[in-house]
Structure formats: structure tokens, C-alpha cells
Design a protein around this nucleic acid. Structure first.
Lengths: 335, 335
DNA sequence: TTGTACGCGTTATCAT
DNA sequence: ATGATAACGCGTACAA
């Protein structure tokens, strides 16, 4: 591997001068600059990022921690983060936490040792001691998608999940539904908790009694949502609409409904959350709440880079809440 | 940031001894080891990976280059690679190439500068000069999923794509189909090229005339597949079955068929390739060729780590071809 | 404008 | 068993 010294020797200059050329220092005679650049080209010299990182205390690397990439939601987030980071000349180390706080702790430690310039968390838990500890070290960081239970002085970029389900439920109510079921997600994720809140809030504001039976646990996977739907179908008085905490669960719910020979939306209305790709398919046509994952991840990444590069005053935390959008398709039967 | 030297000073030993403790050298008295470990604990010391990397010429980092993560296929691959790498104590830098050879070249350069221990390519093109150049440098590398047009002395782990479509078409033939259409993908990806070959091979072996009209370009995106299907439906004599180069295209094809009031599988049979998640949904039930992405990525990652760690004789390249599996659901109308 | 010399944090070699 | 020291490749303060 060729080094700065070899370039220096061959170009008959000192290492310092080569370094100056590489870093575009103005204090270099045009003639020598040219000479150096030529030998750099000739030997195909590549500066060693490790050595640079050590000297400059900057690696141009950020750590991205998320639950998994098999979920299309996080997959798109990963895409956005890598896209944007690359645009700003940063590289991304991808860490998968599986929603496990202990695994996340391990990854944080490794990222610290690798001297990443900043941390991006897409899926923290409501309580997440390892993340809080990291934040206390003062390392640049941004949380997005999910946040903590209390968030003063925390940088975050999130969607208004509560507003999302509120709008969905409101839409159903305005179209005559009164018996609206809700399939919950894991409530130690802030996102799911807020979606439940949105459901409750809409009922309250429109003076509809909250019926405990109509809120069932869908867990985080599709199987659970399937069972949850069956549970709803076993009630004496069926709901006229089902709102799911996300689209994957809505698809499972749809399966369960089909299996019971209930037609959507003729017999029962259905709504999801996320607007994943398949939701718009002719055979599905799922009404849902669209949240702009790409934009959210983009803003989070840009914010982190701003913090890293000192372009943001540390006094005020970055706290951004994006508005979701209602996507009305066939499955809610309102159009 | 605390360093080895500070630990040394406080523990009243030399930096060398601290280093020995960290690296579990046996040549250190139990008593001193304990003393050192305690101060490491107390100061929450973290070894600096940059400095280590510089000394050891090893970063425990691998570069993963793939087209994108919005495609669920690559998303699952990314998951597998990160999972396995983490298990072996490696970290993954994720690079997105968008199937663009020039962008890939840029990423390769950055990864070289960051001194990654090895390279994993999930989506090379048939001709891909930047990748070939890298391989010639002798850097540890494994190609998987796609490969080059000529592959002597190249490490790769792939699926037998040709066999995949061969099996699909054979299955249709054996169930009485004679007029089978094929929706192509981009032919400068080895995977798509091989799938076309499998189609042609099956026709030949079963003495079915190759009708040029029945093979249409589906490009790489869903829109193209939609149009391709419409093109097929405008033929004088309709096909009785359509085989698509992947599942996403099959879903678009399905939309086009529905739009023309053709029922699957009653009026026309349909098959895909990949077995993405949604394929098994009650409303879709797409017959397809399943390829084990996770296993493929797992083997590729393990192989790369073997190469990095010198556990593999360089004399013989790693060349593994996995067998796909036929998944028969409702859409082909054979069950 | 250019060169010399040092330090970033670690590990390996050599000596004790 | 332990310590002193050089080396990894780079950037920079200082000197010239």
C-alpha cells in the first residue's frame, strides 16, 4: 500500500507538502501541486482513513441502529439514511438490534470504539437505558421514528402517529361507523402507543363509547393480528370496521376476514397504517395512513450531520414532528 | 477519551501490560491483571479501533455493496449479512449502488480507504470493470446472487436461476400448457439472463416451438411488467400461462390481468420468481420459485470471513450454486 | 512556499 | 512477568 511518504520521495517533496496537496491547501506552488498530483495518480495512491481518523478525530462514519431490515418499513429507512449520508460524504455502519435493548448496548459499544461521528436510532424502546447513557456522553445523535417516554433535550424526528390513527378513525366515524375495532401493536414502542391514543382520542371527541372488547392485542407479527381478528369475529356484536396498527397486520387481518367469508369493504371496513408498497395493489386496495418514511429518515440524517459538523447550536434540541396523510382506497368502503 | 496510557498510569503498570491484559495474553500475573481490569472498569475505558486497525492492519469491518434496500429481496440479504457478520464480530458498512457501475466504483474506493477487511457484492453487472479491478488487487471478496459473464477464479455463491425457471416452465408443460409466455427482466443482470435461458431450455427439451411473440421485455420495474402483460393480451392467440422473471413483476402482471377481466388461474396461469412475503397471501397465492436468500447471503458472508481469516486455501475459488425450490400455490392452476 | 518533527492510540519486539 | 520503544500513516505547529 502506497503512503504519503512514498509519494513524497518520488515527487521530490516532503510528506507535509503531499498532505497539503491532498487537503487542497492554498499554500502550494502550482508547479509542485501538479507534480504531486501526477505521482498520486501514477501510483494510484489512496489516503488511509484510519490514520486520518486518528489525527482528525473524525471518521465520516455514522452508526445506524434499527430493529431489522426484513420489515419493508425499516428497509426504506435504511435506504434513505445511506442515500443521504453518502451525499454528504458519510459512510453508514448498519446495526440490527431486533428490538433488544441488550443487543443494542453491545452495538453502541462497538460503534463507540470504531469512533463513529454520530448515532442514528430508528427504533428505541420507551425505556432504553443504553441509548440514554450514550446520549449523556454528548455524542452526536438523533432518534427517529420512535422516541422515549420522556424526551426533554432529546433530538428527534418523528411522525405524528396519534394524529394518524385519529384521522383514520375520524374518517370512519364520519362515514357512519360507530363500532370500530382496533388491533394494537406492542405498547412499549412509542409509535404503537401513540396510535392507540389516536384511536381513543377520536372516539372521545365524537362521543362514542369506548368498548374494551374492541381493542385487541395484535403483537408485532402477522400471526398475532390474524388471531386478533378471529377474536373480534367471535364477539356477539361484530364491529363494522377494523383499524390496524400497521399494514402488515391489516393484511393478516384481511386474510382472517376472507377465511370467514367476510368481504371487505362490503361486510366490514379495514384500515392500516404505513402505506407499504403492496397496499395499493388492485387485489388489496387498503386504505391506510401514509407516513413519509423516506423524508423522516432524510431529515434525521441531515440533522445528525448538522450536529456533527457544528452547524446546529447545541442549546436547542432538534424536535420535529411530521404530519401523516390519509390514503383512502377501497378497503374502508367510503368512496 | 481515556487511553491505554492513562490506565497504565493509574494502575501503576506500563502501557504494554495494559495491552496484554486487553488481549488476554497469558504472560501477566493474576494480581496485576486484576488491578488493570479494575481500573479499566472504573474509567470505562474503550480501546480505540482506529489505532488498533492501524497497527494490526485489520478493522473487523466488511463492505456490503448492493443495488438498494427498498427491494425486499435485497433487504433480506442485508439482514442476513449483518446478522452473520455480527456473529463473527464483524461490522458492516452498507453501500447502495443502484445498479450503477460508476457509483459502485466510488464506493469501492471509499471502502478501500477505510481499510475494510473484505468486500461482499450482491448485485454486480455482467460486465463490471470496477469490481474486476478490485478483485485483481487481491482484496478478499465474494460475489453473490449475481455474477459476471465469465467467472474463472472468482468466488461466488449463487442460486441456479436457470434451473428455477426451467422447473416452473416444466411444471406448466406437464400440466398441459403449450403456449407459455415469459416476461423478461434486464438481461445485463446474470440472474435475469439465466432465467430466460431456463425458459428456453424447458421449451426445447419438451419440443415446444419457441414463439418470439411470447417473450416480452418487462424491464426491472413493475410498470414495465404491467405493459408487457397488456402487450401479451393484445396477441391474436393468447398464452395460457405467463411466467415472470420475478414476483414483483408477477404482481403487476396480475393487476393487468384483473383489469382485463381475466381470472387467475381459471383463464390464465401465472408464476413468479423469488417467493417474496406477499406471494403467499390469501388474495394472491402466487406459484413461484423460492430461492433461499438468507442462506445464500449467510454462506457468502461466512465464506468471506473464512477468506479474510486465512481459513481458506486461496488456490481454489469458492463457487457454490444453490438449488431453488418450486412453490405451487393457486395461481398456476395445477393443484 | 516548503521541510522537520511530533503526536494521535495501539501492539509487537526486544530487553530486563 | 514487565517495561521501553518503534512503528502503523497522517496532519500540523513551527521553523526556515
Amino acid at each position: 500500500m502506497t503512503t504519503i511518504k512514498e509519494i513524497a520521495k518520488i515527487a521530490h517533496v516532503s510528506g507535509a507538502t503531499v498532505s497539503r496537496v491532498i487537503n487542497n491547501s492554498p499554500h502550494v506552488k502550482d508547479e509542485t501541486r501538479k507534480k504531486v498530483l501526477e505521482t498520486i495518480e501514477k501510483l494510484n495512491y489512496q489516503p488511509n482513513s484510519l490514520a486520518r481518523g486518528m489525527r482528525l478525530k473524525k471518521t465520516n462514519t455514522i452508526g445506524l441502529l434499527l430493529a431489522n431490515t426484513t420489515n419493508p418499513f425499516y428497509a426504506e429507512i435504511a435506504q434513505a439514511v445511506v442515500d443521504i449520508a453518502s451525499k454528504y460524504n458519510y459512510t453508514v455502519i448498519l446495526c440490527i438490534t431486533n428490538n433488544d435493548s441488550q443487543i443494542q448496548k453491545k452495538h453502541i459499544k462497538i460503534l463507540q470504539q470504531k469512533k463513529v461521528d454520530g448515532f442514528l436510532f430508528a427504533s428505541v424502546l420507551l425505556k432504553d437505558p443504553p441509548v440514554r447513557e450514550l446520549i449523556e456522553t454528548g455524542a452526536p445523535n438523533v432518534l427517529f421514528n420512535r422516541i422515549f417516554s420522556s424526551n426533554e433535550n432529546i433530538n428527534y424526528v418523528v411522525q405524528d402517529n396519534e394524529l394518524g390513527t385519529y384521522m383514520a378513525v375520524e374518517h370512519l366515524i364520519k362515514n357512519g361507523h360507530k363500532r370500530i375495532a382496533f388491533i394494537n401493536g406492542y405498547l412499549n414502542f412509542s409509535t404503537f402507543k401513540q396510535r392507540l391514543n389516536g384511536y381513543l382520542k377520536a372516539l372521545k371527541e365524537y362521543n362514542i363509547n369506548y368498548d374494551k372488547e374492541l381493542v385487541v392485542a395484535g403483537g408485532n407479527n402477522e400471526e398475532k393480528a390474524f388471531e386478533a381478528t378471529q377474536k373480534l369475529l367471535s364477539l356477539e356484536q361484530l364491529p363494522t370496521a377494523i383499524v390496524c396498527s400497521n399494514d402488515s397486520m391489516a393484511l393478516s387481518s384481511l386474510e382472517a376476514l376472507n377465511l370467514s367469508n367476510l368481504k371487505v369493504p362490503e361486510d366490514i371496513s379495514l384500515m392500516g397504517f404505513h402505506d407499504i408498497d403492496i397496499a395499493k395493489h388492485k387485489l388489496i386496495q387498503l386504505s391506510t395512513v401514509s407516513i413519509n418514511k423516506y423524508l423522516m429518515a432524510e431529515i434525521a440524517t441531515k440533522s445528525l450531520i448538522q450536529i456533527i459538523e457544528g452547524d446546529h447550536s447545541e442549546a436547542t434540541p432538534i424536535q420535529i414532528v411530521l404530519k401523516p396523510q390519509l390514503i383512502i382506497r377501497k378497503s374502508c368502503g367510503c368512496c
